[in-house]
């Protein structure tokens, strides 16, 4: 059982929805993003998605693209990202951390070496955008064997025929991408997403978390209400980018998590 499994089981016992927050490692600096990361659990965040910066984030909108570029310009690397997780783990042994990014930095490191380092640093799961089930032998299967969750994205284009394949080697939770599009795009309405979540839940016992396009406490509440939780990324990253202080960004995160937890 990973920290992710434990967290969702505890939330279920409490009858609570999960609030998942995404931040970019190293944006705009290691110090600032670490400070933000450390404050997330206190702001009601149940699961942290930590973005691994990549030069070519083809599934991301401008907000996350620019965050990655700021991080890389500041000298962020895979090693420094893992160091951030180690530093976080010194004070927090419970909050699950999911590393989210693209395959090439991991492939470049070497899969088995990366998995050892990630596990040792305290990462619990991976979301790798450009690794569909067709490429499961690359990282998904080795990650599960190493004791990390491999969290898959399901999308509006994942039809019933394909869904079992997407769910087959997924663990931790299922991340339902509520729209066809990139991160930070317009939000879907809860009533449109509800039947899709239901469709996925009919084929899996894993929690289904919905993301893409959620920016306000109200939509966090309504989307979390029809799923097992929700993810907010671009809205948080955007707040930080607009020059707001970490404590103000955390206050904003708190309003989002309160929204999700009201559901």
């Amino acid at each position: 059982m990973t920290r992710i499994d434990a967290k969702f089981s505890a939330l279920k016992d409490d009858g609570k929805k999960a609030f998942v927050a995404y931040i970019m490692a190293g944006d705009p600096s290691v110090e600032t993003s670490l400070e933000l990361m450390k404050g997330l659990p206190g702001a009601g965040v149940d699961v942290i998605e930590l973005g691994l910066p990549f030069t070519d984030p083809m599934a991301d909108g401008p907000t996350i693209q620019e965050a990655g570029q700021r991080a890389l310009a500041g000298g962020m690397t895979l090693d420094k990202t893992l160091d951030m997780v180690r530093e976080f783990r010194k004070d927090d042994a419970e909050t699950p951390i999911v590393l989210m990014g693209y395959y090439n930095p991991i492939y470049s490191r070497g899969v088995s070496r990366f998995l050892n380092e990630a596990k040792e640093a305290g990462i619990d799961g991976l979301i790798i955008v450009d690794l569909p089930p067709e490429e499961d032998d690359e990282l998904c299967i080795p990650a599960q064997k190493a004791g990390l969750n491999f969290i898959r994205l399901a999308t509006p284009t994942t039809d019933d025929k394909r869904l079992p394949k997407v769910l087959e080697n997924t663990s931790g939770f299922v991340y339902y991408v509520s729209i066809t599009g990139i991160t930070g795009a317009a939000a879907a309405e809860a009533q449109e997403v509800a039947p899709e979540v239901k469709r996925i839940k009919s084929q899996t016992d894993l929690p289904v978390i919905v993301g893409f396009g959620i920016r306000t406490p109200e939509s966090a509440e309504s989307i979390a209400g029809i799923a097992d939780g929700c993810v907010v990324g671009s809205a948080i990253v955007g707040e930080l980018a607009s020059g707001r202080k970490v404590e103000d960004v955390l206050a904003f995160v708190k309003t989002l998590s309160d929204g999700a937890h009201r559901a």
């Binding site: 599934a59 955008v129 399901a154 999308t155 284009t157 994942t158 991408v177 066809t180």
Partner: peptide, 20 residues
């Protein structure tokens, strides 16, 4: 059948594009 030329090629795309 996996779109590989030896170890090269493949289908490294996001799930949204995979059905397409």
């Amino acid at each position: 059948e996996k779109g590989r030329f030896g170890d090269f090629g493949g289908r490294f795309v996001s799930e949204t594009l995979m059905p397409l």
